[in-house]
């Protein structure tokens, strides 16, 4: 999985460059993971700044990083942005939390019970196919332009990938592990806690990843359409006023938030389970 598997192309350094030269130090620096991650962004920002400075696009459509940083600073100082971020994150957290409760319970039920699986699997595929955002209109009719509507949509979004991944995770438990456990005398209850639950964790963590990926997209859409507060609302509000720089601010904030969710929640979860047990090496990151 790792993208850094580039050993075959690494050549020995040309002899004229010594280990202490600036070029060698530069290369050594580039190999450090944080630098390899951040360096491309620095290049993109630099290119962005140059393009904006040259005035290739009219400033009503495209602004440079300096302008965006400026707008970012003002909205932070005014307290608008922090409040919106808190709003968005709270909605996402509440939605994901409830979604986890429902999704995990249903996932195990459907994954472990043959009858439940047979009956609900087609329905599951269908209701997942309808997609979260299509529910927005009727949910608005039921609950109005409210926080409840946003939460319902996010719960809906998170639940389906979670169920499907947990079922897949349960199916992927090798038969011999189940046989080993039962031949060592595990009762049904013990089997559940000692084998099925840990066995489903890799599926669970990939389900949470997919669910969150869809979940926060649903959040943005809901905030744009329901439009009372939040990062999505801020972006669309700015767009209505023709304020490009705040649209850019919104996208940057979303990107950083996703990176933080990944680094603080998803990656540690995977590290503690999937990687520690050597099940899959660093899934899809």
């Amino acid at each position: 999985m790792s993208v850094q598997t580039t050993a075959k192309t690494s050549r020995p350094d040309p002899p004229r460059r010594t280990g202490t030269s600036a070029a060698a130090r530069w290369r050594a620096l580039r190999r450090r993971p944080l630098v390899t991650t951040l360096f491309p962004f620095a290049v993109v920002i630099a290119v962005w700044a140059v393009v904006a400075e040259l005035g290739v696009f009219p400033s009503a459509f495209f602004v440079g990083p300096a302008t965006v940083a400026d707008s970012l600073l003002t909205s932070v100082q005014r307290g608008i942005l922090p409040a919106y971020i808190v709003d968005s994150l709270t909605r996402l957290a509440v939605g994901t939390g409830v979604g986890l409760l429902v999704g995990v319970a249903l996932g195990f039920l459907i994954g472990l019970n043959r009858h439940a699986r047979r009956f609900s699997w087609p329905l599951l595929l269908f209701f997942q196919a309808i997609g979260d955002i299509a529910w927005l209109p009727i949910v608005i009719i039921w609950f109005g332009f409210s926080l409840t509507s946003v939460t319902v949509v996010i719960v809906y979004t998170v639940v389906f990938p979670l169920i499907i991944s947990i079922v897949a995770g349960l199916d992927a438990i090798p038969t011999n592990l189940l046989r080993a456990a039962s031949s060592l005398g595990a009762s049904r209850w013990r089997m559940f806690w000692e084998v099925y639950v840990p066995g489903a964790l890799p599926g669970l963590s990939s389900g949470v990843r997919t669910g969150l990926g869809y979940g926060w997209r649903a959040l943005i859409a809901a905030e744009i359409i329901i439009g009372t507060s939040g990062v999505g609302f801020m972006m669309f509000d700015a767009r209505r006023q023709g304020d490009v720089s705040h649209v850019f601010v919104g996208m940057a904030v979303l990107g950083v938030l996703w990176y933080m969710t990944d680094a603080l929640v998803l990656a540690p979860l995977e590290k503690e389970t999937v990687e520690r047990w050597g099940l899959v090496e660093g899934i899809g990151r």
């Binding site: 031949s183 005398g185 000692e194 389970t273």
Partner: peptide, 29 residues
């Protein structure tokens, strides 16, 4: 049942348990 202990070709060790916990598994059950 535990009266017939099985050793599998693919080991069938629980990947989420340490060696100690794997060996102690049957006793725990």
């Amino acid at each position: 049942g535990p009266d017939r202990g099985v050793v599998f070709q693919d080991f069938a060790l629980f990947p989420w348990k340490t060696v100690l916990a794997n060996v102690a598994f049957g006793l725990k059950m």
